[in-house]
Simulated assay, not measured.
Amino acid sequence: MSTFLFATLDAGGNLPPALLIGAELMRSGHSVRFMGHPAQSDAVRATGADFVPYRSAVPMTPTVELPALRDITMMLSVFTDAGIGRDVVTEARRDPPDLLVIDCLLFGALGAAAKEGLAYVSLVHSFYAFFDGPFRRNPISVLARLKGLGPRQVLEGADLVLVCADPDLDPAGRSRRSGNVVWAGAAVDVTAPATPPAHPHVLVSLSTTAFPGQPEVLQRILDAVADLPIDVTVTTGPAVDPGRLSAPPNVAVHRYIPHTEVMPHCSAVLGHGGHATTMRALAHGLPMLIVPMHPMLDQPMIGKVVQEAGAGLVLGRRSSGAQIAEALMTILDTDSYAAAAGAIGERLRAAGGARTGALLLEGLVERAAA
């Protein structure tokens, strides 16, 4: 039996791939524990893994909408947090794991692990093409680079860069980069395609993380679908109070309902382009309308990739209600979108990204022991 220590952060869709890989490791008899922000405790413990909260982390408020400059400042502080780095190193010294698996956004922890000479893996939970492309050029990464903690700088010492993305969708995966970058496939907990109902049913979800203008975009979507011949389920997450929204009769609004319960009975998904939600929808074979909520994150790239694959359409977050309604009905009325999403879904389910990721981590530990 081997021991694995995962270091993560409370940033929404970054956690599910790590949890799924951790669950696969535990099914194989390994010991798994997570370090993270206190708010992540319940989600981690629900998988059976142990949880150790950070004690020295800077404050993080992902569900509170912030002005753009404060949002950038908070992300930079968290990503380069020396306190998280110290906590991870301290925990690794207190109870040494066979392998340390660190979220790719925790530059401070990645840098601390490299400085201490620890064996570690960087877990990339979206397209590597984004992480090694536009993300490296945004203000957060530029400022991190000035601290010696840029994305490429902290990955140089990693034993493995584990990319939890479909290599056929990830623009970087198509070139199958060599070196320490390896694609496991998208980590999704989906075993069968959705069974769309006779009367179209659409899931709307714009992330559990707060983005500027999110309530206004949600309300515009609700107004747009009011006269459409469809049923709609909306999940707002902790970032938006459902009481702020006015829903028409064909819409049910929930602060939280597991997407694993809703997607199997949907016809399509309207999302923000977050990697976790998008891959889960596609794994169900569901076509998508993607409305990216943050220009500096992976959402625009993911939306573009889904549209180019023929599995959905992309609209800007300032799109009118009429544009939203037209795009949604185009997706529902055009068979090619569901067909393309269905083909992608078959590939994602067959790839078994979480299991493949676990096997790659196991193999790394075995080679180190040998």
Rank of each mutant, 00 (worst) to 15 (best):
A39C: 11
V217M: 07
R174V: 13
E326A: 13
A325H: 07
H254Y: 09
P97C: 01
P96H: 00
R33Q: 11
S207Q: 06
D50V: 10
V163D: 05
A368K: 12
L106E: 03
G303C: 01
T233E: 02
H259T: 15
Q299K: 12
T278I: 06
E116D: 06
H125T: 15
D71T: 12
R152A: 09
T260K: 13
A276W: 04
T73F: 07
A338D: 00
N180H: 08
P295A: 01
M263P: 13
H265T: 14
G85Q: 02
A276S: 12
F4S: 04
P212E: 08
D231L: 02
R86D: 10
S320L: 09
G316E: 08
R45D: 10
V182F: 02
A338T: 08
G150A: 02
A57L: 09
R174H: 06
V240R: 08
Q307H: 03
D95F: 09
D81R: 07
V253R: 15
G12A: 12
V163C: 08
Q40L: 15
T73M: 14
T235M: 00
M26A: 08
A11L: 05
Q214V: 04
R355F: 14
I257G: 13
I344P: 11
R176K: 14
V32L: 07
E116H: 09
S28W: 13
L15N: 01
V225P: 05
E116A: 13
T90W: 06
T334Q: 05
G363N: 15
A247H: 03
F6E: 04
G29H: 05
M296P: 15
E261K: 15
T63F: 03
F6M: 11
L359N: 13
V32Y: 04
G312T: 01
S126G: 13
R280E: 11
A309L: 10
G157F: 04
R347I: 10
L20C: 10
H125I: 14
L270Y: 07
I102N: 01
S31E: 13
G22Y: 01
E91V: 11
A184H: 03
D71E: 07
D298C: 05
P16M: 03
A340Q: 06
L20E: 04
R280Y: 08
S336Q: 06
G185K: 03
F51N: 10
A57E: 02
E308R: 15
V44A: 11
C266T: 09
Q323H: 06
P197C: 06
A198L: 14
G36E: 01
S205G: 14
V32T: 04
L286V: 12
E24F: 05
T233M: 04
K304T: 14
L76C: 08
Q219C: 06
G22R: 02
V89D: 02
A109I: 04
A39W: 05
L203V: 12
A172N: 05
V89H: 01
F130L: 03
S126H: 11
A210P: 12
P17S: 04
Y128M: 12
Q153N: 10
V204M: 12
L25D: 00
G357R: 06
L169H: 09
E308M: 10
S126C: 13
V306I: 03
I230W: 00
V52A: 07
F107L: 01
T80S: 02
L228N: 07
L19A: 02
